[in-house]
Simulated assay, not measured.
Amino acid sequence: MAMTDVLSAEDIKKAVGAFSAAESFNYKKFFEMVGLKKKSPEDVKKVFHILDKDRSGFIEEEELKFVLKGFTPEGRDLSDKETKALLAAGDKDGDGKIGAEEFATLVAES
């Protein structure tokens, strides 16, 4: 499954482009711009599984660094600071990774 099966290619391009500058990533604005906030819980779960590259059932810190590339190959890597901030926001149980439910909560909060 591709990200464009769930989200509009145009919305993805705009959202990723809006955060192309280093240290500019804001997950709340990004999830809203990309259209994820308006999606059903099933669609949010589909996006989670696309971002979970190693199919572990979690999005680990290493996968978070490439979250924008998960939406489009043109996306930049997040900085270490941005990656740690995103992990801190999403990791509700403190296990160092983001599960599907935590991801859904992260999207809903934005």
Rank of each mutant, 00 (worst) to 15 (best):
G90R: 07
T105L: 14
F103S: 01
D5W: 03
K37F: 03
E82S: 06
F58Y: 15
D95W: 10
K13P: 00
L36S: 06
S8T: 05
E62T: 11
V16L: 07
M1H: 11
A18K: 15
G96T: 08
F31Y: 10
I12Y: 00
D93N: 14
D93M: 07
K37W: 01
V6W: 04
D91H: 12
H49N: 15
L78C: 06
G17I: 09
A22W: 08
L64M: 09
D43N: 15
D93H: 13
G96K: 04
L68E: 02
P73H: 05
L78G: 00
V44L: 04
D95L: 09
K92I: 07
A108Y: 05
K97E: 08
D91L: 07
G94E: 05
F30W: 02
I59F: 00
E61K: 15
E102Y: 10
L7K: 06
V67D: 00
K37H: 06
A108K: 15
E60T: 12
K13W: 02
I59L: 01
D52P: 10
M1C: 13
V34Y: 02
K97F: 09
E60F: 07
A89R: 03
E10V: 10
E10M: 05
E102L: 13
E102D: 13
D54K: 14
L68H: 05
D54S: 14
D11H: 14
L51D: 01
D52V: 10
D91I: 12
L78H: 03
F25E: 01
A2G: 06
S20C: 10
E101P: 02
A85W: 04
E63M: 07
M1K: 14
A18D: 12
F58Q: 14
E109A: 15
T4W: 04
A2E: 06
R76D: 02
N26W: 08
V34G: 00
D43K: 11
E82D: 03
K84T: 08
D43H: 12
G75P: 03
V107Q: 01
D52T: 11
N26S: 15
S56W: 11
P41G: 04
F58C: 09
H49Y: 14
L64I: 15
A15G: 05
G99Q: 09
L64Y: 01
V34E: 00
E102S: 12
E61S: 12
K13H: 14
G96E: 05
D43R: 06
G70K: 05
K28R: 14
T72Q: 12
